[in-house]
């Protein structure tokens, strides 16, 4: 499998990258880790005229916790994220996601920004970002804007980012006491895209009641979605399998899977329900164990 002809530039700054995107709008495609894009180019399913490689743009790979957010640079690799001390200490749900994407080589090079911008309907990050109510930081020549994850994933391989913008980072609300997250992915074998994946975040108050939650689901719709009905079902409930099963049913009811090699429609729906329960169990354990 051989790529079609293409051109390649490696801008040294974000401004230069943005200028190229404007000058070559319609032809230019951003290249980050390449582990989603290059296979499509080899299969000639994507044939961009110009690849704009972000590898020399400085400052896009930092991972840091601020007063109100965990900020992950767009060019942080899945492995960078998985091995980050702050994430290992405080964000086990993110460790779940980052450790289960593709295979070790993919995680060495694939980046969160590239994966989020690519918006494969079965990719893992969107589920978590939706559950966590993260925002996606997009920079254009006119400046920076933050798009809530819940408005970002528009359709299959389609996001709210403009072709002249660069996705520069992800902001995830800083974890507070009583909050826990988890991601559960069902795959046919290790390294596969998700048959279904569910990320769950719960906030449990001192009295043991769920006072907030986020459920993000991938692999079972044209685009990953936030299972808001499941979130509603959990509000004010005591954590436990009854509440989790109700949430799972609600999350499954919102799915719109298609029957394919990964399974029939009713199986995928049932898996959404099952994975929601499992993710909620684990998120709850983590929430109860986390005092800030």
């Amino acid at each position: 499998m051989i790529p079609a002809q293409l051109d390649y530039v490696r801008p040294a700054s974000l401004d230069e990258a943005l200028r190229i995107l404007v000058d070559r709008e319609g032809e230019a495609k951003l290249l980050s880790g390449g582990y989603s894009l290059i296979p499509l180019i080899k299969l000639r399913l994507a044939q961009p005229a110009l690849l704009v490689d972000l590898q020399s743009v400085p400052g896009l790979d930092a991972i840091a916790e601020t007063d109100d957010a965990l900020v992950i640079g767009a060019r942080a690799t899945h492995r960078d994220i998985h091995e980050s001390a702050v994430i290992r200490d405080r964000y086990p749900g993110i460790v779940d996601v980052a450790g289960g994407i593709g295979d070790p080589q993919v995680r060495n090079w694939g980046t969160i920004g590239g994966s989020v911008a690519h918006a494969d309907p079965a990719s893992d990050w969107p589920a978590f970002l939706l559950a966590a109510n993260a925002t996606i930081v997009c920079r254009g020549q006119g400046g920076e804007r933050e798009v809530p994850a819940r408005h970002f994933f528009v359709d299959t391989f389609t996001t709210a980012i403009e072709p002249t913008e660069v996705l520069t980072g992800i902001r995830i609300p800083r974890r507070a006491a009583g909050v826990g997250g988890a991601y559960q992915k069902l795959e046919r074998k290790v390294g596969d895209f998700a048959t279904a994946g569910v990320a769950a975040i719960v906030r449990i108050d001192a009295g043991g009641t769920i006072v907030g939650s986020g459920i993000g689901v991938t692999g079972v719709s044209a685009s990953p979605y936030a299972a808001v009905d499941a979130e509603s079902a959990l509000a004010g409930k005591r954590p436990g399998d009854d509440a989790f099963r109700a949430a799972g049913q609600a999350a499954a009811a919102m799915s719109q899977p298609v029957s394919d090699v990964r399974g029939p429609v009713d199986y995928k729906r049932a898996m959404v329900a099952e994975l929601t329960v499992r993710a909620l169990r684990r998120a709850t354990e983590r929430a109860l164990a986390f005092n800030g």
């Binding site: 048959t195 990964r262 399974g263 049932a270």
Partner: peptide, 16 residues
């Protein structure tokens, strides 16, 4: 013997 095949059986028997 894929997971959907096994799940179908369990589901039909009311196990899953």
């Amino acid at each position: 013997i894929t997971p959907p095949k096994v799940w179908r059986i369990l589901h039909d028997k009311g196990i899953s």
